[in-house]
């Protein structure tokens, strides 16, 4: 055999295949199911936000203490800020399946650069909400003689745990993001 690769082409293309072509109906069903799942996930996210708004909004209306109400309103403002910042991070429209490799590469690079998640940027997003929660608790404690700081300690402890976890996760996410960008840079140089 003088040209093994050419023989390999014949061998490769000569494989037995039992192609089962899907019916158009089956494809339509799958495509519709996929679209439905995507929409459902978005709806679920929006529903969660709506539940939080309703919950804090209700407290802002029914709590007897004016200070506590102000605190709830502050939480709502913080929640609005967080939601607005999160919505900025929604991924862009994914290129269709016929997109060329370079288009996909550029899309991925842009997304990676756009979705940088450092601890600082995370704090910008959720910081006002956390401050608002602390503010509302402080108002609740100061305006209610029966309530003590000890009562809100579990919430403060949870927030502290969340902050430490967020710090670790953001460091890991940023490291991975940099690795992926470096990988993409290497791909581009190769071209």
């Amino acid at each position: 055999m003088s040209q093994p690769p050419d023989d390999l082409k014949t061998l490769w293309q000569g494989q037995d295949t039992e192609t089962k072509v899907m019916s158009v109906y089956a494809i339509r069903t799958r495509a519709a199911r996929f679209t439905f799942r995507r929409r459902l996930s978005y709806l679920f996210s929006f529903a969660l936000i709506a539940v939080e708004v309703v919950m804090f909004g209700r407290y802002a209306l029914i709590l007897p203490n004016v200070g506590a109400r102000i605190g709830m309103l502050a939480v709502l403002v913080g929640l609005g800020w967080t939601t607005a910042r999160f919505s900025l991070g929604w991924p862009g429209k994914f290129p269709d399946a016929a997109a060329s490799g370079s288009t996909l590469l550029e899309f991925h690079r842009t997304e990676l650069q756009r979705q940088q998640l450092t601890f600082a940027s995370m704090m910008v997003t959720v910081g006002p909400l956390l401050l608002a929660i602390v503010f509302s608790m402080a108002l609740a404690v100061l305006n209610d003689p029966h309530r003590r700081w000890l009562n809100v300690t579990p919430v403060l402890a949870l927030m502290a745990i969340w902050l430490v976890t967020a710090w670790f996760l953001s460091r890991r996410a940023e490291r991975r993001r940099r690795e992926k960008l470096a990988e993409l840079d290497a791909t581009r140089v190769e071209e």
Partner: peptide, 10 residues
């Protein structure tokens, strides 16, 4: 099947 779906959509 995924490839066929993507192909049809494309």
């Amino acid at each position: 099947q995924d490839i066929h779906v993507a192909l049809w959509r494309s």
